[in-house]
Simulated assay, not measured.
Amino acid sequence: MRNSSLLLIPCALLAACSYTAPPIGEQEKLYDFDERVHYYQTKLSSKKYRVEVVEDGYQNFQRQSVFILRHANNLCKGRTFTLKVIKGVQEYDRFPTTPRKYEPNLLTEVTCD
Rank of each mutant, 00 (worst) to 15 (best):
V51H: 04
D113W: 14
N105I: 08
T82L: 15
V51N: 03
F67Q: 00
T42K: 02
D56N: 06
L44T: 09
I24H: 00
Q90I: 08
G78S: 07
F33S: 05
P104V: 04
V37L: 02
C11T: 15
R63V: 03
C76H: 10
Q27K: 00
R50I: 00
L30I: 04
K101W: 05
A16M: 09
P10V: 14
M1W: 15
E28Y: 02
K47C: 09
D93C: 13
R36C: 08
Y49S: 12
S45G: 04
M1H: 11
Y39H: 05
L13D: 05
N105E: 03
N105R: 02
K29T: 04
T111C: 13
S4I: 14
S5F: 13
I9Q: 13
N60H: 09
I9V: 14
D32C: 08
Q64K: 02
D34V: 14
T42S: 06
E28A: 01
I68Y: 02
R100F: 03
S5E: 11
N73C: 11
D56K: 01
C11A: 15
Y19L: 07
P10R: 12
V66G: 00
I86P: 05
G25L: 06
Y39M: 11
C76Y: 12
C11K: 04
R63E: 10
L83I: 12
R94L: 11
Q90D: 10
F67H: 01
K77T: 01
P96R: 00
Y92D: 09
T98R: 06
L69A: 10
P22V: 12
F61W: 01
M1A: 14
K87D: 13
Y31W: 05
L69H: 06
T82H: 15
K87H: 09
I9A: 09
V37Y: 03
L107G: 04
L75V: 10
L30S: 02
K77W: 00
F81V: 12
S65Q: 05
I9N: 11
F67V: 04
D113P: 14
L14W: 04
N3V: 15
